[in-house]
Design a protein around this nucleic acid. Structure first.
Lengths: 261, 261
DNA sequence: GATCCGATTTGACGCAGATCAAGCCACGGG
DNA sequence: CCCGTGGCTTGATCTGCGTCAAATCGGATC
């Protein structure tokens, strides 16, 4: 890996505080790879040989069972994913695929576990990262169990708007089908729900969403710090759908050739 | 705290490997308390001042929003809960209440964070525990999003039976209303679902459930290691409904007097 | 044993959201 | 410019599960 790449990783919360020697030994066996869209990086059930770090692009985490598939989260630069599986040396619970053209750094996970014991700062950073991931999934689960689909969508839209400084609107960072799956509904339902939110001051024009009356939407979503975050502590470490635009910035994302490995 | 109690805690995966001095300084400010049933130990949104350890009895973790409530997990002896909030020093995402008469050890969480840096073994143990919790919630979420209510119930029953050595049956470790909430359905629906599973060799008699044909039930549940566990790694560290009988062993659980603090 | 109280069950009904099946639209390639 | 390929929308219909209300059960108290 080049030095510029190393510097980027070094700056992640997970690696920022760790000892230089440990960082070097950890990353010496790491490698950097760029994938086109729709490449499956990880298959659930596989063994966690590498900790993955998304450097550019974005990665969808999804789970399957009996032919059904659901997206669990989208990982944006710069952050790690499937940390927990690496730590436990246990099978992945989720699969991962690239959404657009995506650059990923892969760090051998055997090295991780040996370094925890030598590097207290790294251990602490890992603990913090894991705790953030945990809380992120708990939030997602609470959303699924406590809110209706309509409320989840409303809350999602509000979160997006707020995370971009309360502008009047934003363009969806992911395809609607993916958003639907993340919210736990079918694309058809999402489409209808979007329309039903027009009464609450939501205007939809393709990927572009504009709010005329955020307060009205808030009456539907009933936003709540414990469901929608953010944690007072730090910025977005955890999982979830992207906070910033992606995919739209990578026009080559769609219609990718299928890989034959 | 008495020495016998200390010894019990000391034996937890989380504390087993840690340095003796650190263990003592951590637990010196800890205290041990026994509560009757239905006492709320934690209110979501509160600050995480104490790491809780369930010594006897059991604790329900639940979340609320807009008057709705849903149970997220049940914690059994001997394990910890709300570790993530303590680490992040962030507001609790879940509330907690005792189910039966329950003994809980509370460890001040300020001490936790200082010790991570001094005690690599403790840090590693924390990492492992958190990773297990994370995977546990991910499983729960996958269940909610991929299976129907009927399939979730079938899978739950199978998990229970298997975790007790594949006997012919078992008695529900929690009230049905709680199980319903955990599975994400109303008590009425659970009741109907139970009845509908009678066609699959499930006999229900009060709290007692007996299987005549586990294979038939497995056709409904389609059990899967990635959804139902267990992790090959270790035993039940994470969250979920109890693996062993409780509540039935504490007949004083119900009809508790409300506490007036 | 009579009574009370909450948990559970049962029934009737309604609704949110899934499913199935077209249609629409945008884009890229021939 | 026409056509094919997805993604998205729309409509019709179905159904799993929720809601509301009432009955039943079972343990606990007196």
């Amino acid at each position: 890996m080049r030095n510029t790449e190393l510097a980027e990783i070094r700056d992640l919360p997970l690696f920022r505080t760790m000892d230089e020697d440990n960082f070097l030994s950890l990353t010496q066996a790491a490698y950097d790879q760029t994938f086109p869209a729709q490449v499956q990086l990880i298959e659930e059930g596989g063994t966690a040989d590498f900790l993955h770090v998304v450097m550019e692009g974005s990665v969808e985490l999804f789970a399957t069972w009996q032919g059904h598939e659901t997206t669990m989260a989208v990982v944006n630069p710069i952050s790690t994913f499937i940390l927990a599986a690496c730590i436990q040396d246990a099978p992945y619970l989720m699969s991962a695929r690239t959404l657009g053209r995506t650059r990923v750094v892969m760090v051998p996970s055997v090295d991780l576990r040996t370094i925890f014991l030598n590097d207290p700062n790294f251990a602490l950073a890992t603990i913090t990262e894991l705790a953030a991931c945990y809380r992120s999934v708990v939030r997602h689960t609470k959303n699924l169990k406590l809110r209706t689909a309509r409320e989840r969508l409303a809350a999602y839209i509000l979160r997006q708007v707020r995370s971009r400084g309360n502008g009047a609107g934003f363009t969806l960072p992911v395809e609607k089908r993916l958003l639907a799956s993340y919210l736990g509904v079918t694309p058809e339902s999402l489409s209808r729900l979007m329309k039903s939110l027009q009464d609450c001051g939501v205007h939809i024009e393709g990927q572009r969403i504009t709010l005329t009356d955020p307060a009205l939407l808030a009456e539907v979503a009933k936003p709540d710090a414990l469901l929608d975050g953010p944690d007072p502590a730090g910025p977005s470490i955890g999982l979830g759908l992207p906070d910033c635009d992606l995919g739209t910035a990578q026009p080559d994302a769609r219609r990718a050739v299928r890989e034959t490995p």
